[in-house]
Amino acid sequence: MPIEVNGKSFETDEEGYLANLGEWEKDLATAMAAEDGIDLGDDHWEIINFLREYYEEYQIAPAVRVLTKAVGKKLGKDKGNSKYLYELFPYGPGKQACKFAGLPKPTGCV
């Protein structure tokens, strides 16, 4: 089901993940978040940008426990924990944040 943002149509898979990574833009993330009832703040963007960089480097959308560990390494322990990340992304920091970041559904998320 495609998502319409600023008059542009974005193809997604059946679970709402962006079909073409290269099409991603910030307004799309904002729109996806709004649909989930989230107003993206700086803390959200920090994680979303982190995920995009992570994907660029490793070509994986990380599973939640790997994301938590990696965030901890890069942004510090107070952010690299489930509580912090779940507060930002209540549907699961792996799944939901990856979706907003335009990445595929995390690999190894069971």
């Binding site: 480097e57 490793y58 070509q59 990380p62 990696a70």
Partner: peptide, 12 residues
């Protein structure tokens, strides 16, 4: 380019 994934295995 999935060859980059090998570098991430450690994190898993």
């Amino acid at each position: 380019n999935f060859s980059k994934i090998y570098s991430a295995l450690e994190m898993y």
